[in-house]
Amino acid sequence: MALTVLEPEGLYPDSSVEDAIWQGAARVLRGNAVNDMSSLSDAMLAQADAIMTLRCSVRAEDIARAPNLKLVVRMGVGYDRVDREACAARGVIVCNTPDYGTMEVGEFAVLLAMSLRRGLTLYHDTQRGDTPAPWAFIRHPVVRRQEVQTFALLGCGRIGTAAGLRAKALGYRVVFFDPLQPNGWERGLGFARVRTLDALLEQADVLSIHTPLTRATRGLIGERELRLMPKNAVVVNTARGPILDIDALARVMQDGHIAGAGLDVIPVEPPVEPVPELLRAYRDRAPWTLGRLIITPHIAFHSPEAWDDIRRLSVETVRDVLLEGKQTNVIPPQSE
Rank of each mutant, 00 (worst) to 15 (best):
V235Q: 07
R30A: 06
V142H: 14
D284M: 12
W135F: 15
M75G: 03
K70G: 06
R227M: 03
C87F: 05
Q149C: 15
R158D: 12
D205T: 07
A89T: 03
I221Q: 09
V174W: 08
P67I: 04
P271S: 05
Q334P: 00
A192P: 00
S39D: 12
T196L: 01
L165Q: 15
E202V: 06
R145F: 14
A89K: 15
V321Q: 08
R81F: 04
E305N: 10
P332Y: 11
L263R: 08
E147P: 00
A163N: 10
L228F: 02
V77F: 15
G171C: 07
R311C: 09
P8Q: 04
R90Y: 05
A250D: 14
S115T: 11
G24W: 12
T317S: 13
L170C: 12
K168F: 00
G24T: 05
T211Q: 11
A199D: 12
L197V: 00
R55P: 00
T53Y: 03
L322F: 08
L197E: 01
I159W: 10
D125A: 01
A306T: 13
Q127H: 08
P287F: 00
G190I: 07
P276I: 09
R30P: 01
G291E: 06
I93S: 04
T196C: 02
F177N: 01
R74A: 12
G184W: 04
P98R: 12
P267I: 06
T121C: 14
S39W: 05
P274R: 10
R195Y: 06
L293S: 07
D14G: 02
R55M: 07
L290K: 12
A25N: 14
Y123R: 03
M114E: 11
R117A: 13
A2F: 06
V5L: 02
V94A: 04
P141S: 13
S38D: 14
E324S: 01
A48L: 03
R158N: 14
A60E: 14
G119F: 08
F108E: 11
R195P: 00
L54T: 12
